[in-house]
């Protein structure tokens, strides 16, 4: 078991964003987290990476309680994420963005950086090489010197994945990676995530694109109003009465609105 979410709740000023949610992810899985808007999916990511601490409950990663660990320490442990609203470093080249991702897997300090010691030069070379490989993996090698802000939307999403991969995660958190992508881009995203899985990385993904989720995920948890509604394989989820109702109910509301 890679990640275990144990009775996690999060309360924001009296409102329960998450209520007593429990699920666990096995090694090598692609695990989906779905649910209507405001169901608490991104909040779950923020709790796992400790942007907030949960009100109650525990988060166990590889057998270790990481609930109160600082964000950057959690990344060191091997969890890295992308953001729903893309948070790249805009005025930095694509290559450098990915190299920043490799920060916690390198250790040059001020002294060795300024005097360019042998080990520092070697480390920089390795970082650059690895960043280029990752850019190639996501198909952006030709844009390595382009500022992140000048990349197209779909490219930015893929760059964010490459940046996260540079931290050598054993668990990758993807927050709506297909948002705003067209069909072709979504297809190549599917291939990319499968490739990531084949590299031995476990994936936890939030996504609204249902066909993609059903095709991609091994197992899925459905959240609704902060509570776990259902858990199971894509087939089980698709035939689950409560899930269908939650989604259909939502769609009706949207039509009225």
């Amino acid at each position: 078991m890679v990640l275990k979410i144990q009775n996690v709740s999060k309360n924001f000023g009296g409102i329960n964003a998450l209520k007593d949610v429990t699920f666990s992810i096995n090694e090598g899985e692609i695990y989906g987290l779905i649910g209507p808007n405001g169901a608490g999916k991104t909040t779950m990511f923020n709790l796992i990476t400790n942007i907030f601490e949960p009100t109650s409950g525990e988060i166990i990663f590889n057998g270790e309680n990481i609930t109160a660990l600082k964000s950057y320490k959690i990344t060191e442990k091997g969890i890295c994420r992308t953001y729903q609203n893309i948070r790249l470093f805009p005025q930095m080249s694509a290559l450098k963005n990915v190299m920043v991702g490799g920060h916690c897997r390198s250790n040059a300090g001020v002294f060795s950086s300024v005097f360019r010691t042998k080990s520092q030069r070697k480390e920089e070379q390795e970082l650059t090489k690895k960043a280029e490989e990752l850019l190639e993996l996501v198909g952006l090698l030709e844009f390595k010197d382009t500022f992140a802000e000048n990349l197209a939307y779909g490219q930015q999403r893929r760059l964010e994945i490459a940046r996260a991969l540079a931290s050598n995660p054993s668990l990758l958190l993807l927050d709506e990676p297909a948002a705003g992508m067209n069909e072709k881009e979504t297809d190549s995203l599917y291939d990319l995530i499968k490739m990531v899985q084949s590299m031995g990385i476990t994936v936890l993904i939030i996504e609204h694109d249902m066909p993609l989720v059903m095709k991609l995920c091994d197992r899925i948890t459905v959240l609704n109003f902060g509570e776990k509604l259902a858990e199971g394989t894509p087939e089980e989820i698709q035939s689950n009465e409560a899930v269908i109702e939650a989604y259909l109910g939502k769609e009706e509301e949207e039509e009225i609105a």
Binding site: R81, M99, V100, H103
Partner: peptide, 18 residues
């Protein structure tokens, strides 16, 4: 790189392990 990533987006920098 760490310094300028903090300047551009502090939260993202921290979640990259900085």
């Amino acid at each position: 790189r760490s310094l300028s990533s903090i300047q551009m987006d502090e939260k993202a920098a921290e979640s990259m392990g900085i």
